[in-house]
């Protein structure tokens, strides 16, 4: 401003331009800028909201999946728990279940090799009386 005040010739050239610009151009700029800002914010907000929702949905999905995996992997077909919470199989528990399986196949009421179903009295003539 000091430069302009000292140089009158330059001031004379610039002043009319500022005067005419300030009355006609400036208000137009203000009127044009405000609607543009409103239009660009709405999609941005919707996008952000969708992103947050998607993120929340993803977290829920992952946690449900994890819970389902924990339930299914910790148990064998017969419902025995063989995995710890960290997903590792407890070797001692597995050893116990193996031995239990072995025990179930050793039921003493079951005869592994039953006596052959043969007629032990098979003969042609009746035995002689002694």
């Amino acid at each position: 401003m000091q430069n302009l005040d000292s140089n009158q010739t330059q001031f004379a050239e610039i002043t009319p331009v500022f005067e005419s610009g300030s009355t006609s151009v400036a208000p137009k700029k203000v009127q044009n800028d405000e609607p543009v800002k409103k239009k660009s914010n709405l999609p941005l907000l919707v996008g952000a909201l969708a992103l947050v929702l998607a993120f929340v949905f993803l977290i829920i999905l992952i946690s449900v999946k994890l819970a389902m995996n924990t339930n299914s992997e910790n148990k064998t077909d017969d419902g025995r728990i063989v995995e710890q919470n960290d997903g590792q199989v407890d070797p001692l528990l597995e050893e116990i279940y193996d031995l239990d399986d072995q025990l179930q196949s050793s039921d003493p009421t079951i005869d592994e090799i039953p006596f052959p179903p043969v007629d032990m009295t098979l003969r042609l003539d009746a035995p002689k009386k002694k």
Partner: peptide, 18 residues
Amino acid sequence: ASVFADLSQTMLFLAEIV
């Protein structure tokens, strides 16, 4: 039969302890 039943019980107890 008694041995079999007691061994089954032992397996259950051991699994519970582990």
